[in-house]
């Protein structure tokens, strides 16, 4: 099967330091891949390269088989990649209402007005914010903003959605509630997802396959049970030990 997202020997440099050292990854359509790694391991860089916000120093990025970035070149700009993103800081546009935040991408894709309204309404209902469509992000709680960010990404019906530690700074209850919502939305839309996190339990709650990134290299890949049984590095061992401690 042609992977929805594929990275082939991708390198990235910043300030004369290699951030990524030849990583290769494949995410098949409809799959959720959790990219786990400690702070500074290069997770966000991987995401920015897939999005087309950063060109790889070396290597190829393919989306549904087509090369989109290659050896310092961005072949397809971010807006033509059919991707959606939830950033760590959510990046909700503060001058636009919830509804306008969701409409932005649809508007630029020239979605007919009726379809646009219907999709926004449906998505806001799914995330439980249909009564807050006219609010500005500054008038919402932390959990509500998180929901808007997820809704804004999925309303576009993207090929794949990329999530960069979207649940950081939320309490445990809210986090598990949002993980359940995200899982059901991804299943509903059938979107491929790359979920960047440093929390193993988030990956497991999403039933995701896991890739572990350490110091710019993929050091392990597989289902959680396999990695737990045979942890290849101290970091992976610590991840699952933390999980067991609760």
């Amino acid at each position: 099967m042609t992977p929805a997202i594929a990275l082939e020997d991708v390198w990235a440099r910043q300030d004369r330091t290699d951030i990524l050292k030849g990583i290769s990854l494949r995410v098949v359509p409809g799959e959720i891949l959790a990219l786990i790694g400690p702070s500074g391991s290069g997770k966000t860089t991987v995401l920015r390269i897939i999005l087309g916000l950063l060109a790889p120093e070396r290597g190829v990025v393919r989306l549904t088989g087509e090369p989109v970035s290659e050896n310092r070149q961005i072949l397809v700009p971010p807006d033509r990649r059919g991707l959606a993103v939830v950033f760590q800081d959510l990046a909700l546009w503060p001058h636009l209402t919830v509804e306008q935040n969701l409409a932005f991408g649809l508007d630029l894709k020239r979605t007919p007005r009726a379809t646009r309204a219907e999709r926004i309404h449906h998505m806001l209902t799914r995330v439980g914010l249909s009564d807050k469509a006219r609010r500005f992000p500054g008038q919402l709680s932390g959990g509500e903003r998180q929901r808007v960010a997820i809704a804004r990404a999925l309303v576009l019906q993207p090929h794949a959605v990329l999530l960069d530690e979207p649940l950081t700074n939320l309490d445990v209850v809210l986090r598990s509630e949002l993980l359940a919502l995200l899982r059901s939305l991804l299943a509903e839309t059938g979107a491929t997802a790359l979920y960047v996190t440093h929390q193993i339990h988030e990956a497991m709650a999403l039933d995701a396959r896991i890739a572990v990134l350490e110091q710019g290299r993929i050091v392990a890949e597989g289902v959680p049970q396999l990695l737990a049984a045979m942890p290849p590095t101290a970091f992976v061992r610590a991840l699952f030990a933390d999980r067991e401690r609760g």
Binding site: V85, A91, F104
Partner: peptide, 26 residues
């Protein structure tokens, strides 16, 4: 944050759209 413009870029806004619809009104 730069991510406000990057989000617009990912969601289909070219640089003029980003300037006109995100940067200027914001």
């Amino acid at each position: 944050p730069r991510s406000l413009e990057e989000a617009a870029a990912v969601f289909g806004g070219g640089r003029i759209a980003q300037l006109r619809r995100i940067v200027a009104p914001l």
